[in-house]
């Protein structure tokens, strides 16, 4: 390397022929920028403004300061939804160790690897509405196949998706089922990046397969695990489809198992209380930002960039 250590080959080549600032570049960006302004930046400002307003069903609104946020703080349903979203996210994260083990198993065999990847990935490409319906049927308390199977071994299963105390856990298990495929693919790519020399060296030093996995593979896999963790948290906090299909719309479990985004949807588009819904969305954004920031801070303690 020469004194230039920052860039790739491309950057170095480009620096030999510096371009003059020109507005042609802006012309390329302009169409997307216009859309970004109209559909994202202006709406974002609108959402903030709405969250500080009391809105009526006909689009009328009056400025009420932080009233919506005060209302949220005193709203038992909001805290319940927050807890349910946290529960769902925490349980879906339990799927990550499962994905690590499955990705390692797929990596350890030399036949049918791709078949396994395809099978685990099927739920990812399946319509979430369809996934929710099938599982709702499987979970049916009366004639669902799960409880009938449990009955064979003498367990009297609950009414999984109709019982408000159990429903969020039942949906979370489906959350694991649908997220395994993505995680296995990302972790599998990480496993292929583990240098063979290190594994061979540790074998020669007498490390068994388990020791090798824990001491060599896992630390080298930690950036992939961190990536999967970040993606899982962000998407789990925004989960909507499964709740809508499995327990939404008047089910007996609806009141007990609703999540943040489900409540946001109900407030904004069913009850037409846009101001309150907007406040809910802002809280969700804040929550995601805090969790992501904490994660990036914590990663220094456990993610190994070799």
């Amino acid at each position: 390397m020469t004194t230039i250590t920052t860039g790739s080959g491309v950057a170095r080549r480009r620096s030999r022929t510096p371009r003059k600032p020109s507005l042609i570049g802006l012309a390329y960006v302009a169409p997307a920028l216009a859309g970004l302004l109209a559909l994202y930046i202006v709406p974002l400002a609108g959402t903030f403004q709405l969250s500080l307003s009391e809105t009526g069903p006909f689009g009328d609104s009056t400025f009420t300061g932080l009233d919506n946020y005060r209302r949220l703080a005193g709203d038992a349903d909001f805290w319940l939804a927050l807890r349910n979203s946290a529960t769902y996210t925490a349980i879906v994260l339990l799927g990550i160790p499962i994905a690590v083990v499955l990705a390692a198993l797929i990596h350890s065999v030399d036949r049918f690897n791709n078949l396994y990847r395809v099978l685990f990935f099927l739920p990812v490409v399946t319509l979430p509405v369809a996934v929710g319906m099938v599982w709702r049927y499987i979970y049916n308390g009366e004639f669902g196949i799960l409880n009938q199977a449990l009955g064979l071994v003498g367990i009297d299963g609950p009414n999984w998706v109709a019982d408000p105390a159990v429903a969020i856990y039942a949906v979370s298990v489906v959350g694991i089922w649908t997220s395994l495929g993505t995680n296995i693919i990302i972790l599998g790519a990480g496993l292929r990046g583990v240098p063979k020399e290190l594994l061979e060296a540790s074998s020669m030093d007498g490390a068994g397969p388990v020791r090798q996995f824990v001491s060599v593979t896992l630390p080298l896999l930690s950036p992939s695990i961190f990536f999967v963790l970040t993606l899982s948290i962000i998407s789990s906090l925004q989960m909507f489809d499964l709740i809508y299909v499995m327990i939404g719309r008047g089910s007996t479990a609806e009141s007990g198992a609703q999540t943040m985004v489900y409540r946001f949807f109900q407030q904004s588009f069913v009850e037409y209380d846009q101001g309150y819904g907007a406040a809910n969305a802002i809280v969700l954004l804040t929550l995601i930002m805090i969790v992501t920031a904490v994660q990036f801070r914590l990663q220094r303690k456990w993610v190994f960039y070799g």
Binding site: A38, L44, T47, A281
Partner: peptide, 21 residues
């Protein structure tokens, strides 16, 4: 940077205003 930040934020944040749009 604005592109990346805006479009990576949760979609719910824009939903009401996009609906009104």
């Amino acid at each position: 940077a604005l592109f990346l930040i805006m479009l990576m934020a949760p979609s719910q944040l824009f939903l009401i205003a996009q609906f009104n749009f």
